[in-house]
Design a protein around this nucleic acid. Structure first.
Lengths: 106, 106
DNA sequence: TATAAGCGCAACCGTTTGGTTTCGCAAATT
DNA sequence: AATTTGCGAAACCAAACGGTTGCGCTTATA
């Protein structure tokens, strides 16, 4: 069982759910209404998201509200940082660098 | 066939490959040497990465050098932006906001 | 020219995935 | 008290995934 954040955001439905519950907590039924899928399917996706701690649930009577744990998204951002560095500085003329390296090898 | 960037970076081996070839182009064999996996397996991962245009290949005699297309990584960063906004401003006291919304609903 | 090396591709196989259907439980409604 | 509603969990299924093995092609080396 993989169950990490990168695997969690790999599914487009899951990404849509994440975006949907970013600003306000929602119930599985309410979420499912936004897509062409069943409540059970959404429920399964939510379970995965909860398991890797990207989403938290809060019982409210017989309803369960799901919302995003924004801080957890930082872990993806953290991995992205190494690449952002590359296009934010002038080192993004990567092709030149690579050519140089290859020539040295020969 | 899913074949989008998010699905591409879902696999840990693929993420490692990406990091590995960020700074210098490498051949499948050279990449495989860095992991406990075969050349063919790496080759399959590379094909997926090439298909979603995250990686480019360059023939050099009988060897093929693979390197990252850094700009493509921006697409992930672009999606992340909506969340980065949340923890960069003081709106990251999201819990309070959510509670308010829920109370209004009742 | 024969052999070895580097590679992509297709076939195959066990496992995982995403979805549906069915069930049971607890909270609301009648 | 009986029924409806919102939900999670389990069983099931077709499709996709990640890996291996074997093949054939091309380029380098003997």
């Amino acid at each position: 069982m993989r169950r990490d954040i990168f695997q969690a955001i790999a599914d487009p439905t899951r990404r849509a759910i994440i975006t949907l519950i970013t600003l306000q907590a929602m119930t599985p039924n309410a979420i499912a209404d936004n897509f062409h899928t069943s409540r059970q399917s959404v429920s399964k996706h939510l379970r995965i998201l909860v398991e890797c701690e990207l989403v938290k649930q809060e019982q409210q009577g017989r309803e369960i509200y799901y919302s995003l744990k924004v801080e957890k998204m930082k872990e993806i951002d953290k991995w992205m940082a190494q690449f952002r560095k590359l296009w934010e500085t002038r080192f993004n003329q990567l092709d030149n660098v690579l050519s140089t390296i290859k020539k040295q090898k020969k």
